[in-house]
Amino acid sequence: MSRAGAYTLTAVVVAATGLYAATDGLRALTAEAARRVQIQETRPAVPPFVVEGLQGRRHALRPDSNQVVMVEFIYTTCPTICQTAGGDFAALRDRAVDRGLPVRMLSVSFDPAADGLSELRDYADRHGADGDVWSVARLRPADLQDALRFFRVKAVPDGWGGYQHNAAVLLIDPDGLLVAAYDTGDFDRILAHVEQLS
């Protein structure tokens, strides 16, 4: 092979290796896919974030005892994706209860300025989140930025007073590690993972 050919071939190998590494082994071309791959691989410990529940009671986001916590981030005035996500969460709750899985589900508002306790209650009523397995809460303003950064939630104002955001179901295992993120409608894989954790 000519010298130029050898140099070029070497460059191609180096370039392909670089792109392979930059896409987590061709698994993640988007930031959202990267988030999911990296959560599964690093399993970061959830910091002691405190959320404010429907009765104004504060509780930790981390699991109490031998349970798995499913978290989704929402804002309650959302007309589209959160309503779908809310519907998905209701379906997920029904299936988890049917299977008798030790799970707690939390819809957490990332917009505590707009979502007062009455807005959270409306949202809970609308979706049948009775607080038994599934409850609705909001982040405290003090924790907001840290929590959005930790869970890698990105909410972009949509110009109509709402947001477009990377909705997902996040799984926290009984040890308080964030172990996975799934599409909100990916019931089978979510429940299989919860079963395996509990």
Binding site: R3, Y7, T8, T10, A11, V12, A15
Partner: peptide, 11 residues
């Protein structure tokens, strides 16, 4: 250098 055009293009 002519030999480097290929690698530069790939880069």
């Amino acid at each position: 250098a002519p030999d480097l055009r290929g690698p530069l293009l790939v880069l």
